[in-house]
């Protein structure tokens, strides 16, 4: 278990280092970073400002040194300043963090609460109406683009039916559990949770089917264990391993989905910040948010690895 964890940890670090190198490399491939500050149609820059900016950005040093200086800053949470407003990116990120976390947690919880039990049900009652329903949901979730589902949801529930608000996170001064605020969360969370729910359903179902067909389940049945015990105690605990390993695959889509959903619903989170940076050509903000997403992604993968190692006795007792 210890060796396994160390290996996974080193791998996570390696991935992050490569990510920072890629992002840094890309930022330098963009040409002279100073040009970013000289906006097209602007008035150009005085030699004094060029020199100031060069020193501020560390451009007068060799590339490798620049990389480490930049990395050191990033590690200390200093992501530089936005080009548009020249305010610290870290402050922007802090402001936008809470809405994103709310959205992500709600969507992920929804995905698990819907996907996993439906997957189990679909496998246990194979060929039943539940199974057809589950498989239809899984197929639909696999094929329907997140951004389109979101927009169709707005069309139906906001424009046509008028049940839910079409966007933004609602008033700031109302607590989350009040309907006045909560109603803003429902649509984005469902639209974002939809895809992962389908993925969890499919994975849980196939893993359950495999386990339910195995010898030890047959033995448990033959010994007369009741079926609830068989399903939840014997089968489920083994079957859940596979969806956990595959959580990584779901996660990449989940993060992209979060960006997309925030854009559609004008949700004031990190995803929206990322897209604004794309539109404004705001390079420091974009690289910072992308790095942040990558970090979250790698960290979650690492957590999944730990959970997997803990749940899988072959690794736990290694």
């Amino acid at each position: 278990m210890k060796r396994y964890l160390i290996r996974r940890f080193l791998f996570a670090i390696l991935t992050l280092v490569v990510a920072t190198m890629l992002v840094f490399g890309l930022s330098r491939a963009a040409g002279d970073p100073l040009l970013l500050y000289a906006k097209p149609g602007g008035y150009g820059m005085s030699p004094q400002r060029v020199e100031d900016l060069s020193r501020k950005l560390g451009l007068d040093k060799p590339l490798v040194v620049q990389y480490f200086v930049w990395l050191g800053r990033v590690l200390r949470g200093d992501f530089g300043e936005t080009i548009v407003a020249e305010t610290p990116v870290s402050r922007l990120i802090r402001e936008r963090m809470a809405p994103t976390v709310q959205l992500a947690v709600a969507a992920f919880a929804l995905a698990i609460v819907v996907g996993v039990p439906l997957g189990v049900l679909s496998a246990v009652r194979r060929g039943s109406l539940w199974d057809y329903l589950g498989r239809a949901l899984a197929l639909f979730g696999q094929g329907a683009p997140t951004f389109w589902v979101g927009i169709m949801a707005i069309l139906l529930f906001a424009v046509i039916l008028g049940w839910l608000p079409a966007g933004t996170a609602g008033p700031d001064d109302v607590p989350l559990w009040k309907w006045a605020k909560l109603q803003y969360l429902i649509m984005p969370a469902v639209a974002l949770g939809w895809g992962p729910a389908a993925a969890f359903l499919r994975l849980t179902r196939s893993a359950m089917l495999e386990v339910l067909g195995s010898e030890y389940i047959k033995l448990a049945r033959a010994k007369g264990a009741n079926s609830t015990v068989i399903v939840w105690k014997h089968a489920f605990r083994n079957a859940i391993l596979q969806p956990l390993t595959a959580a990584a695959i779901t996660l990449a889509g989940f993060i992209t989905g979060a960006v997309v959903i925030e854009r559609i619903f004008a949700w004031p989170g990190i995803g929206q910040l990322t897209i604004e940076a794309v539109w404004n050509n705001d390079f420091p903000t974009l690289t910072s948010t992308v790095l942040l997403w990558t970090f979250v992604f790698v960290f979650m993968n690492f957590l999944a690895d730990i959970a997997y190692g803990y749940l899988n006795p072959v690794i736990r007792y290694e």
Partner: peptide
């Protein structure tokens, strides 16, 4: 391949699209 699969690729693509 492992490292490559360890990225949320589409976001990296956003950066590339802005740079180039």
């Amino acid at each position: 391949v492992d490292v490559w699969l360890g990225f949320p690729f589409l976001l990296l693509a956003l950066v590339v699209a802005i740079v180039i």
